[in-house]
Amino acid sequence: MIHVKLASKAYDVVIASGVRHQVGERLATIWQPRQVMIVTDQNVGPLYLADVSASLAQHGFTVHTTTVPAGETSKSLQMVEQIVGEMAAYGFTRQDAIVALGGGVVGDLTGVIASLYMRGIAFAQIATSLTAQVDASVGGKTAVNMATVKNIMGSFYQPDMVLIDPDFLQTLSDRDLVEGYAEVVKTSVLAGGDFWRLTGDIKTVAAIRERAETLITKSVLYKRDIVVADEKEGGVRKYLNFGHTLGHAIELMAHGELRHGEAVAIGMVAISERFEKAGITESGITALLRDRLVAVGLPVASPLIGQAAFYDHLKNDKKNAAGTLQLVAISVPGQPTIVQKDLADMPAFVESR
C-alpha cells in the first residue's frame, strides 16, 4: 500500500494481486453505504463489472452501472453530460460516489464527472490497464478531449482510493500491455538508479508480465513523490510530461492508429535525439532508451513528425506558455530538466536530428 498525502487530501494506492475481489470491502473502509455509479467500457465491463458490482452490493452499496465505448472518443463532453444525466435521474447527491473501472480513458472521464457533479463527489479508481496502473490513476489529473485537442478540458481532482490488481493484466493483449510499458520506461529514465537498470533488464513482453507488480510499485512510488511535491504541475510535475509534447501531437495525427503509449514512445526518442544533438542529453542515452522500447515491440519513429499539422497541434499543448513550450529533457537518467523553446523555433529544432 502506498500512501499519498497532499495538503488538502490523503488517500491510499493499494497494489496487490487479488484486490479486485475486495472492492466492496476496501471501499467500505472509507465510505458509508451509499449509491455508487460504476463507469466502465465495452472491453472491461464484460470481464469484471459483474464481480465488482456484486462486491459493492455485498457491503451495503446501491450499485448503478454505465458502459461507454472503448477508446479516446469516450473522453468527450457529450459523454460527461450523458453520465451526469443518468446520475441525476437516479437521484445522486454529494453523499454518493462514482467509481472508474477501466484504463486511462475511463479514469479520466470518470474523474471529470466526479469533479463536476454537484461541484464534487466521492471518487475511486480501479485501474485495469498498465497505463492506468502506473500513471493515469494516480495524481488526480482528469480530462476530456475536443475533436482536435487532447486533454484540453479537465481538472485536478484526487480520488479517495486507488485499487491496482496486477492480475487485471492477464486479460490485456500484448499490444495493450506494451503501450502501458512505455510509461514505465518514461518513469524509469526520470527516476534513474535501480529503476532505470530494471527496465534495462526487461527484454520481452513475458518479462513485463512476470515483473508487473514491481514495475507498477516503482512507478507509483516515483509519481507519488512528484505529485506530493507539486500537485498542480507548477514545477517538478512537468517532468512527467517527458515525451508527451511531441507524443500527443503524433497521437492526434494518427487518428487512432497509434495507442497513447506508442505515441509517447516515439515522442521520447524523438525529443531525446534532438536534445542529445544539442548537447543537453548525454551522448548514448537515446540509444539506451530506444533499446528498452524496441525490445518489447514499441515504435520509436514516425513520419508524422515535422508535418504541418504536427506544429499546429503543438500550439494547443498544455505546456505552451505564451508561445513558449516547456520541453522535458533527460541530462542523464535520474536528472530531468525543463528546456524552454519558442514555438517559432520548433521547426528548426525538430528538423535538427
Rank of each mutant, 00 (worst) to 15 (best):
M1R: 11
V4E: 02
K5R: 13
A7P: 10
S8F: 12
V23R: 12
G24S: 10
G24T: 10
E25D: 10
L27D: 02
W31P: 10
P33C: 04
R34H: 06
V36L: 02
M37Y: 12
P46Y: 00
L47Y: 01
L47V: 14
S53G: 12
A57L: 09
Q58C: 11
H59D: 11
E72I: 07
K75H: 09
V80P: 00
Q82F: 07
V84W: 05
A88F: 12
Y90E: 14
F92D: 06
F92Q: 02
T93N: 03
R94T: 01
Q95N: 12
A97M: 03
I98M: 11
V99H: 03
L101Y: 05
G103A: 08
G104R: 04
V105Y: 02
V105Q: 03
T110F: 02
V112E: 03
A114G: 12
A114C: 07
S115W: 03
M118C: 02
R119C: 07
A122W: 04
Q133K: 08
V134K: 07
A136P: 01
S137M: 04
V138Y: 09
G140Y: 02
T142R: 00
A143N: 01
V144K: 11
N145Y: 07
V149Y: 04
K150R: 02
N151V: 06
N151D: 05
G154Y: 03
F156E: 01
Q158A: 05
D160N: 15
D160Q: 13
D160P: 12
V162H: 01
F168K: 09
Q170S: 15
T171M: 06
L172Y: 11
S173V: 03
S173Q: 09
V178H: 08
Y181C: 04
V184L: 06
G192A: 11
G193D: 13
G193K: 04
F195C: 12
K203S: 13
R209D: 09
R211E: 11
R211F: 07
R211L: 07
R211I: 03
S219Y: 05
R224Q: 15
I226P: 00
V227W: 03
E233L: 07
E233M: 06
E233H: 08
G234S: 09
G234D: 06
L240E: 10
G247V: 01
L252K: 15
L258Y: 15
A265D: 01
I266T: 03
M268S: 04
E273P: 00
F275H: 05
T286N: 13
T286A: 13
A287G: 04
L288P: 01
L289I: 14
R290L: 00
L293V: 02
L293I: 04
V296N: 10
L298P: 11
I305R: 05
Q307G: 15
Q307Y: 00
A309H: 05
L314F: 03
K318G: 08
L325W: 12
Q326W: 13
A329Y: 08
A329R: 06
I330A: 02
S331T: 13
G334T: 11
Q335W: 00
K341S: 09
D345T: 11
F349A: 06
